[in-house]
Design a protein around this nucleic acid. Structure first.
Ligand SMILES: NC(=O)c1ccc[n+]([C@@H]2O[C@H](COP(=O)([O-])OP(=O)(O)OC[C@H]3O[C@@H](n4cnc5c(N)ncnc54)[C@H](O)[C@@H]3O)[C@@H](O)[C@H]2O)c1
Ligand SMILES: NC(=O)c1ccc[n+]([C@@H]2O[C@H](COP(=O)([O-])OP(=O)(O)OC[C@H]3O[C@@H](n4cnc5c(N)ncnc54)[C@H](O)[C@@H]3O)[C@@H](O)[C@H]2O)c1
Lengths: 206, 206
DNA sequence: CATTTTATGAGAAAGTGTTCACAAGTCGCC
DNA sequence: GGCGACTTGTGAACACTTTCTCATAAAATG
């Protein structure tokens, strides 16, 4: 029960969670393994296998109740609560992230936004006031954030990452192409759609 | 040799390609499996195993030549050329995508940008003129694009996807949270960092 | 109320993927 | 010119994943 999940299972459960969260938002009450599998690009048997490892969540002939399955998976992944994150860079991308509900829907609240540009510091973006990037480490410690998101130009990425690390951040999502060096206990997740495009194209061409 | 790659291998090779491309950009000439593995968050043996399936690209005691390994992997994935894509939505995110080199670095050129807002049509963003979203299907056919990127508000995503499909697009990258319905021969790739955040957090908490 | 349809849950087996451990090649330095 | 540090490539063991299959259960239909 409390054994550590493998990366594959945890990643797929997260995908199911994304699909369920959005299904609920769109008003759906019940969903079948078939439907989940289509949105997740996996085999329906795999969906059922992933879920049945942890209990019997579905009803034969009916499918899964969206709300209850959502709660179950949140329980398995221990991600029911609300988590704060720090965003560095309030340019085009940063603004898009703040004004989007893509993080909020999954319980991730943006606790602070930082920028270096004096003209932007103090401005409002969404509900937040842009803070001075010089205070990243200080403010991250104050806020106790563990998650950081980088939406700065590539040449500022390493500096910004260093500030986040100094502030105690352990997981950094990097939207830039820069390869970052961080201590062993910090994990970098790179968001680069071009990478996925490369293999999407491979399977299209083959 | 020409057998189809599994998803896992193709995905990792794409990751290596991203790392190598950026390493070259940063002036590196040689790289070890250890270094690649650190940036890719995998085991060094895995890197060597993935590569050695296709030939002996490295030099013992030295590592891999960045340029030559890059060409080899491009050969394996058949992605040496330049590919055009269509971008729908010229808001904050769309502008960030156009002005970023994240796609260009990997041979993806943005062929057209579309928006619905009459005030924005005709405006310049980067080197491109924003076109009327009413012409998506028409222009995609003209340009022969197979790749589409959605950076529109969630409520417009299905409509925009339909236009891309009508224009012959086969691979759609969806930055919105909307669950899209498309024909069987079209693949949707969802860009949602929150999903990855969920399991990143799981492994951090466990 | 019996029959048909739909969809889950799980056994079992085949298929893949991952990692260890180490032999072998390369380079620089003394 | 040989020694030591480094790094690749791979056999073999192990672990995990995926899929086929079908019994079982709920709901819909007539
Ligand atoms: N991965 C993706 O999907 C994706 C998509 C689009 C853009 N991008 C990347 O995102 C990054 C940002 O793009 P953008 O269009 O928002 O750029 P932008 O220039 O509009 O915004 C960058 C912001 O960062 C601020 N900044 C610069 N240095 C800083 C520092 N040291 N500390 C804090 N703030 C700093 C700038 O003042 C600016 O406001 C780029 O690297 C781009 O390549 C990634
Ligand atoms: N996945 C991620 O990493 C990520 C990050 C940030 C934002 N987002 C998402 O990206 C989307 C766009 O965000 P944004 O901040 O750029 O929004 P935005 O409002 O700034 O831009 C949206 C643009 O789309 C245009 N548009 C609306 N309907 C259209 C249609 N039918 N056809 C063509 N164009 C249309 C609008 O005119 C506008 O210019 C949102 O859905 C947001 O949630 C995703």
């Amino acid at each position: 029960m409390s054994e550590k999940l493998t990366l594959g299972v945890a990643a797929r459960l997260s995908t199911y969670l994304r699909i369920l969260t959005q299904s609920r938002k769109q008003g759906l009450q019940s969903i079948s393994s078939q439907e989940i599998s289509e949105y997740a690009n996996v085999n329906p048997t795999q969906v059922r296998r992933d879920l049945s490892t942890f209990g019997k969540f579905g009803k034969r002939g009916v499918g899964y109740n969206v709300d209850s399955l959502l709660n179950q998976i949140q329980g398995i992944l221990h991600t029911g609560g609300v988590h704060s994150l720090a965003l560095v860079g309030a340019g085009n991308l940063g603004t898009a992230i703040v004004t989007s509900s893509i993080f909020k829907d999954h319980g991730f609240g943006i606790a602070a936004v930082f920028d270096r540009d004096p003209a932007r510091i103090g401005e409002k973006v969404g509900d937040l006031i842009i803070e001075d990037a010089a205070n990243i480490a200080l403010r991250c410690k104050e806020l106790g954030v563990v998650l950081g998101v980088l939406a700065v130009p590539p040449e500022s990425a390493q500096w910004a990452a260093d500030q986040l690390v100094a502030g105690g951040t352990k997981i950094i999502f990097n939207y830039t192409e820069t390869l970052l060096s961080v201590p062993e206990d910090v994990t970098i997740h790179t968001i680069n759609p071009a990478e996925e495009m490369l293999y999407a194209l491979y399977f299209y061409l083959t």
